[in-house]
């Protein structure tokens, strides 16, 4: 049993286990369910994630309100027809994150990770990593347990809700979960996983939640695209041996306090930020 990052690391080190193994054991203890059943449920999650992050790549999926759509497809075509600046990996990762966001905004099926608004980041991160390193589905499932462990710690000690913590609590936490998952997939230590998670949150600390018309569409989809890039680069930094000066638990605490001190107008109410720009207000009047 662990309540925070430090306790998680202690268990990993004492038992010489990876994060996903500790998280899986905790889930078995907590629910009394056998390992196969828990892994199968996670496999269902993975299957939905693969479908949602692929679905909008080759067709234009338009959101319920019509505010967003077709962006995943645009990026995919851009990769196919151009020499991109950031390379194929970063671009396909963004396309996959946009795909899930578009599926979500068009009333398609997704896995909240940790929320529906941030659901594009984790699937894209692990699928893109698994593709590059030719990793198996079982390894991807393992990585989802790593990610879940990070998410549980944040949920328990802070928040994963945009209404309470702003976008940093949704897309920031999703990126932290994804970064840790990638590092563990690629053989990094539990410490390196937590550094990757810390870096991801540090990078977007204070990010507000200011959706146009209150809908999970714009800027959510962009923040999923940038969120997966955040996860990938944070993972690379941690795998390079770079550490976050501030330990994970303190980063989470800082995120929580920043979230609480954000005004309500910047926490999912659509009363501040981009939502109340002239164009934001015009768009709202158009779609609602």
């Amino acid at each position: 049993m662990f309540n925070n990052g430090e306790e998680l690391l202690t268990i990993c080190n004492k038992k010489n286990k990876k994060i996903y193994e500790v998280v899986l054991q905790k889930e078995m203890d907590q629910t009394g369910k056998p390992i196969e059943e828990i892994r199968n449920l996670m496999k269902e999650n993975l299957n939905v994630m693969i479908e949602s992050s692929t679905h909008a790549l080759d067709k234009n999926i338009i959101s319920v309100s019509g505010l967003i759509g077709g962006q995943a497809n645009k990026v995919k075509k851009y990769i196919e027809n151009n020499k991109t600046l950031c390379g194929d990996l970063i671009n396909i990762a963004m396309a996959r994150a946009l795909s899930t966001s578009e599926v979500n905004a068009s009333m398609g099926k997704i896995v909240a990770a940790p929320t529906a608004g941030a659901s594009g980041i984790l699937p894209s991160a692990i699928i893109t990593t698994a593709e590059k390193f030719d990793l198996s589905k079982e390894e991807m499932i393992n990585s989802l347990f790593t990610a879940a462990g990070i998410g549980e710690i944040v949920a328990k000690n802070a928040t994963i809700s945009g209404a309470y913590g702003g976008c940093q609590a949704e897309c920031g936490v999703a990126a932290a979960m994804a970064a840790a998952a990638i590092v563990e997939m690629l053989g990094g230590s539990p410490e390196a996983c937590l550094h990757a998670a810390s870096i991801s949150i540090v990078n977007i600390l204070g990010l507000v939640c200011d959706p146009i018309a209150g809908l999970v569409e714009f800027p959510c989809a962009f923040r999923n695209a940038s969120g997966v890039v955040n996860a990938l680069t944070s993972a690379d930094l941690a795998l390079a041996g770079i550490e976050s000066l501030i330990p994970f638990d303190e980063v989470v605490e800082a995120m929580y306090k920043v979230g609480k001190s954000l005004p309500d107008s910047l926490k999912e109410t659509a009363l501040g930020g981009l939502a109340v720009t002239q164009t934001g207000k015009d768009l709202k009047n158009k779609v609602l």
Binding site: V23, E27, Q30, T31, I38, L41, M42, E44, N45, V48, S63, V64, V103, N104, A105, S106, M107, G108, K109, I110, V111, A112, A113, P114, T115, A116, G117, S119, L122, L144, F145, A147, A148, G149, G151, E152, V154, A155, K156, I160, M177, L215, V216, E217
Partner: peptide, 17 residues
């Protein structure tokens, strides 16, 4: 207490939990 499926899930139809 949180479990893994509290933070990875539900599988749902979007856009908002």
């Amino acid at each position: 207490e949180y479990g893994v499926f509290d933070v990875l899930g539900p599988i749902m139809i979007g856009p908002s939990s």
